[in-house]
Amino acid sequence: MTSASQLRSGKTHRDENFPVASWIIHPRHRALILAFYNFVRTADDIADHATLAARDKLSYLDMLEAELLGHGDSQPETVNLRRALAERSMPPRHAQDVLTAFRMDVTKLRYEHWDEVMHYCRYSAMPVGRFMLDVHGESTSTWAASDALCAGLQINNHLQDCGKDYRNLNRVYLPRDALAAAGASVEALGAGRASAPLLQCLHSLATRTEGLLHEGKSLSADVRDIRLGLEISVIQAFAHRIVHLLRIRDPLSETVHLGPVELLLYSVGAVASEMTRRAVGRRPVSKPAAGA
Rank of each mutant, 00 (worst) to 15 (best):
E87C: 15
H257N: 08
H240R: 13
E67Q: 13
H71D: 07
L61K: 03
M90E: 13
N38Y: 12
R103C: 14
P19L: 02
E231S: 13
L7A: 10
L265D: 08
A279W: 14
E215C: 09
S286I: 08
P251M: 10
F131K: 05
T12E: 06
M63V: 08
L64T: 05
I235L: 07
L264S: 11
Q200S: 10
A43T: 08
G229T: 05
S139K: 01
L205V: 08
A182I: 15
L149W: 05
T140W: 04
E67L: 11
A237R: 01
E16S: 12
D45T: 06
S5G: 10
H244K: 09
C162P: 00
D45V: 05
A206N: 02
G70Q: 10
N170S: 13
L174S: 06
F36P: 07
P175Y: 09
T140P: 05
R8F: 00
D56G: 01
W143C: 02
L245H: 08
T42Y: 04
A95M: 12
G259P: 11
Y123D: 08
L61F: 04
R227Y: 00
L265N: 11
W114M: 13
V117Y: 04
T100C: 12
P175G: 09
M104D: 11
G190Q: 13
Q236M: 15
L205C: 10
S195E: 14
R241M: 10
M275L: 15
S253A: 15
